[in-house]
């Protein structure tokens, strides 16, 4: 269970998250939607432990532990996974090495035996097949020269290998054509399980045609301004984000149905 309470975060003295509350129960998939600049990616980065953001107030409780007290690598080992909006290219580090280093770091932490080269290869090849990645990507530098779709598949591959308890997908749909989107969504759906929670951050509704969320939240100006079921996403698709901003201009957080155009 993840409980975010009154989270405030800033970068370079600028407040981005301004009192965000969110609860995600085990096994649930929550979608967070919102216009550009609403703080979606900041939320993802703060959860993953990026130090460039300063948490100025609030708390994040994860199964009784203070998530914000852990450095990024410990969060990852404890089972948090962030699928990056812009996966980083690392020239000179092969994808195979990177994946193995990551998987074994996590397995060590969980008290599982580290994979040897053969076991690791057979495991990774099976997962690659599932996300439609060719084996040659193992021997290329991490994300270097990968297309947008290939980078996102590589993120889903890492998620599958690391078996997180909580996965945060930051605009995993951006820059994908519909076929790539389906493959990525299938990869995500395969990983849905009662022990695994997911936060799917997206600007567009269309991803939610393929990854059906339990709950949808609308983020605006650093706060969750509305929460609802899947139908909320469809509403946003129909009316855009304009009405939220208009409502925010009035009473913050009180986006009422009547304020919609």
């Amino acid at each position: 269970m993840l409980k975010i309470n009154n989270l405030h975060a800033a970068i370079d003295g600028k407040d981005i998250l301004k009192g965000l509350d969110l609860e995600v129960a085990d096994g649930e998939v929550h979608a967070i939607m919102g216009p550009n600049g609403s703080g979606k990616s900041t939320l993802a980065q703060v959860l993953a432990g990026r130090e460039t953001f300063t948490v100025t107030d609030g708390s994040v409780d994860w199964d009784g532990a203070d998530l914000l007290a852990l450095p990024a690598e410990e969060r990852a080992r404890a089972g948090l996974f962030l699928a990056f909006q812009y996966p980083v290219e690392i020239p000179g580090v092969s994808n195979a090495y990177f994946l193995k280093a990551a998987v074994n770091a996590v397995r060590r932490h969980r008290g599982l035996p580290e994979y040897d080269a053969m076991d690791f290869l057979s495991r990774v090849k099976a997962e690659m097949k599932a996300v439609g990645m060719k084996e040659e990507f193992l021997y290329r530098s991490v994300n270097e020269g990968f297309s947008g779709g290939e980078k996102k598949r590589n993120e889903v591959l890492q998620m599958a290998l690391l078996e997180p308890r909580l996965a945060v997908l930051d605009e995993t749909d951006s820059g994908l054509d519909i076929d790539a989107l389906k493959i990525v969504a299938e990869g995500v759906n395969r990983l849905r399980s009662p022990e695994r929670s997911m936060i799917v951050i997206t600007h567009y509704q269309r991803l939610l045609d393929y990854i059906v969320p339990d709950k949808v939240h609308v983020l605006s100006q650093g706060r969750i301004v509305r929460s609802g079921g899947r139908e909320l996403a469809l509403e946003l698709e129909e009316h855009g984000y304009g009405w939220i901003d208009a409502a925010q201009g009035g009473k913050a957080g009180g986006a009422s149905v009547g304020a919609r155009p």
């Binding site: 990852a76 080992r77 280093a101």
Partner: peptide, 19 residues
Amino acid sequence: ALFYLRSRGVDAVHARQLL
């Protein structure tokens, strides 16, 4: 790149070495 590696569970020292 350092953060990317750390976000995958690789500790900071090892991430620096690797890069």
